[in-house]
Amino acid sequence: MQLVHKTLLGPTYGSPLEKIQILPTTNAADPQKRYLAYITKDKVGLQILPVDGNPHKSSAFICHPDGVSDLASSYDGRYIFTVGGNDCTVMKWEVNLNFLANTAEANELEDYFYYAQLRSHGIDTLETRQVSTHIPLEEIPSVMRAMGFYPSEEKVEEMINEVKFSKYTDTGEQVTTINLGDFIKLYVNHRPVFGLSMKNIQRAFQVLGYDNENGEKVVDRGDLLLLLQRRGEHMTEEELAQCLTTLLGKRPGGGGSEPDTYDPSEEIPKEITAEIFAADILGLPVAEPEKNRKKR
């Protein structure tokens, strides 16, 4: 008797999957992203892993109308080779991971956008909801951050004001909501073109940190907490505790009438490397450092 852990709907492209292969990855910036190549009766396709039933994370194209018999990938995962049957041909396909990722991201954005609608109406409300195609401007930063773009407070104010006063010259009135189409334009135009770079984080640690006994460039935990509260767009102690609790996936202990003494900063190592800060605190997908991180 087999134990079923989860049931997921896979892509349907005319026939069951004939062969699957995990694509090799050389993407050191994001090693946690993996992709699956597959063939059906006459198609070749890609699937973003893990499989979760989202149809937007998979695509396929006809590669051999008379049937495909085998599949292979190049050593770096940039190309897929398919072999036909009766046609006696071999086809070479260039893998475009960005296209598939952008398609999945657009669907993810739509989900977050409509969740923001529900949140603005109240998640637990029992009243009839007023269906709308807009969300309040105050929800813009939440949806942006859910999509992996983390704007500063200054950037948030800039984006909100851009929408708020977009029609002021013509109508003399401020805009208070935004629809999905305009939100996508705002997201595309304001997010960093090249995304968040690990090199930028490492450069900051080179400036702020010191060399520990293992020769690693680190920042002291206490110094980091003080920097977050005193420099740049400084945070209050309460805001910092709330953010750390959320980032570390922790919940304050205690309960009842006893005071809560949980301190989220205690979950952070005393010496923090750029990799620990990015992967363990911010939760960003970065490559493991060369040295064994268990030594910390």
Rank of each mutant, 00 (worst) to 15 (best):
Lys167Met: 11
Lys185His: 12
Phe149Gln: 02
Tyr150Cys: 07
Val4Leu: 13
Gln2Glu: 10
Asp111Trp: 06
Ala72Leu: 09
Ser152Arg: 07
Tyr13Ala: 08
His121Thr: 04
Leu9Ser: 09
Thr245Ser: 12
Pro24His: 05
Ser152Thr: 15
Ile39Trp: 00
Met147Tyr: 06
Leu36Lys: 07
Cys88Asn: 15
Ala104Met: 04
Gly10Tyr: 06
Phe61Leu: 12
Tyr38Asp: 00
Lys185Cys: 08
Thr169Ala: 15
Thr177Gln: 05
Glu153Gln: 11
Leu227Lys: 08
Thr273Asp: 02
Leu71Asn: 04
Glu237Lys: 15
Pro31Gly: 08
Ala72Met: 11
Val218Pro: 00
Ala101Arg: 07
Gly45His: 02
Leu8Ser: 10
Val156Gln: 06
Thr128Glu: 13
Met235His: 01
Met198Gly: 15
Gln21Pro: 00
Gly255Ile: 04
Lys43Cys: 13
Ala116Asp: 03
Gly122Ser: 06
Asp223Lys: 11
Ile276Tyr: 14
Glu105Cys: 10
Asp170Thr: 10
Arg296Tyr: 14
Asp280Glu: 08
Pro259Val: 14
Val175Gly: 04
Phe113Arg: 02
Glu290Ser: 13
Gly14Asp: 13
Ile22Gly: 02
His56Arg: 10
Gly77Ser: 09
Val68Asn: 00
Asp87Ala: 09
Leu8Val: 15
Lys270Ser: 15
Ile62Phe: 01
Thr236Asn: 06
Val175Gln: 11
Val286Ser: 00
Arg230Cys: 09
Leu36His: 02
Leu248Cys: 08
Asn98Tyr: 05
Gln242Ser: 14
Ala60Ser: 15
Val193Pro: 00
Lys199Phe: 09
Asp263Thr: 08
Asn212Glu: 09
Pro50Ser: 11
Tyr262Lys: 02
Leu284Ile: 07
Tyr262Asn: 04
Lys217Cys: 15
Pro31Arg: 05
Ala204Trp: 07
Phe81Thr: 03
Val188Ile: 13
Glu110Asn: 13
Gln47Asp: 12
Arg230Lys: 14
His134Trp: 04
Pro55Ile: 14
Thr103Lys: 15
Glu154Met: 08
Gly215Lys: 05
Ser120Phe: 01
Ile62Met: 09
Tyr168Arg: 10
Asp70Tyr: 05
Gly181Trp: 08
Asp111Leu: 13
Gly249Lys: 05
Glu238Cys: 05
Glu154Gly: 11
Asn214Glu: 15
Val286Lys: 02
Gly256Asn: 12
Asn214Val: 10
Tyr35Ser: 02
Glu233Lys: 03
Pro289Phe: 10
Pro259Trp: 06
Ile281Glu: 00
Glu139His: 03
Arg296Gln: 12
Lys19Thr: 08
Leu17Lys: 06
Ile80Leu: 05
Ile80Gln: 00
Leu46Gly: 01
Asn189Glu: 13
Thr171Cys: 06
Thr261His: 09
Met147Cys: 13
Pro264Gln: 04
Glu94Leu: 07
Pro285His: 02
